[in-house]
């Protein structure tokens, strides 16, 4: 049978659920609020950054431009978007289990691996949709309202100025890595979803794991030094590396590898367990 039909089925289900629009709606409102706030009082907001350099540097041109606005929006939202992703993906299997449709699904001529694979693909597509929507809103609204210009980014090494002509590919790369990070969350929540028969459990468990790993990642305790580089939460903000100069290729490659390995681990756990799971609901 055609595997795309299963993915299409999953999309029909996601599209019909009201909660799927919660994430899209929340992102739209949040981006609009941030952009509106920056439009109203953005110059004083960025003066916190520029003030410390004004004795040695002179800032000219359109500093508060669409590219900076999009960067600020991304920085503010990428932390919260995992919850919106988990809200949908954590429900993909456990929701069906709770509703009783999983047993109907699994008594049709389709293997459990195909069911799970189609759910992973649909989850990845939803995550991609959220990331693209965030990108369209942040960059589109930012550039539309604030115009374009060079991007000024403050990071731990100091101030980085990226020329306007050098920005687009960095955003594409940043969104691709942001997608990979968010899809790691989606993969984790789907894997947890295999173990549960109610839809709330996997969503709460996913967020709990993210919070726990983030705390471990930020605690300056030497005992965690050895595991910190391997936690996926350490690499959730790797998209920011695209806005560094010189471009940290090794750092980004490392993050991509860690995130991909997490994908593989979560896939393996879920495929192994779901194949053997007794459907008793």
């Amino acid at each position: 049978m055609n595997p795309f039909k299963n993915v299409y089925n999953e999309w029909v289900k996601i599209a019909a659920k009201p909660r799927s629009y919660l994430g899209v709606g929340a992102i739209t409102v949040l981006v609009a609020v941030i952009v509106f706030a920056l439009k109203a009082d953005g110059l004083s907001f960025i003066s916190f950054v520029t003030a410390s350099f004004e004795q040695t540097l002179t800032f000219g041109g359109n500093v508060l431009n669409g590219n900076l606005v999009a960067f600020i929006v991304l920085q503010m939202l990428v932390i919260h978007v995992p919850l919106l992703v988990a809200l949908i993906t954590g429900d993909l299997i456990s929701g069906e289990s709770a509703m009783g449709t999983l047993r109907l699904l699994l008594t049709h001529p389709i293997s459990r691996h195909q069911v799970l694979a189609s759910k992973y693909m649909a989850g990845a597509m939803y995550t991609a949709f959220i990331v693209v929507w965030l990108g369209i809103l942040a960059i589109g609204l930012g550039r539309g309202l604030f115009g374009t210009g060079d991007l000024m980014v403050l990071n731990s090494d100091g101030l980085v100025i990226i020329l306007e002509s050098d920005i687009t590919w960095r955003y594409v790369g940043a969104f691709a890595v942001a997608f990979l990070a968010l899809n790691t969350v989606a993969t984790l929540s789907i894997a947890l979803s295999c173990f549960s028969d109610n839809s709330v459990g996997p969503i709460v468990a996913t967020m709990s794991i993210i919070i726990l790993f983030t705390i471990i990642g930020t605690l300056d305790v030497s005992i965690f030094d050895s595991i910190r580089p391997f936690l996926f939460t350490t690499h959730m903000a790797s998209w920011r590396s695209f806005f560094e100069d010189p471009f940290p290729m090794d750092e980004i490659s490392n993050s991509v590898w860690v995130l991909m390995i997490h994908h593989v681990i979560f896939w393996a756990i879920s495929f192994f367990y779901f194949h053997r799971k007794d459907i008793t609901t």
Partner: peptide, 27 residues
């Protein structure tokens, strides 16, 4: 074809849309 215990469907979809989902899974 089967109904085990009780027929549970996707409540947010129509009767026809539900059947179309299962029709796409048929051999």
């Amino acid at each position: 074809g089967n109904i085990i215990e009780k027929p549970d469907f996707y409540k947010y979809l129509s009767a026809e849309a539900n059947l179309k989902i299962f029709a796409r899974m048929a051999s």
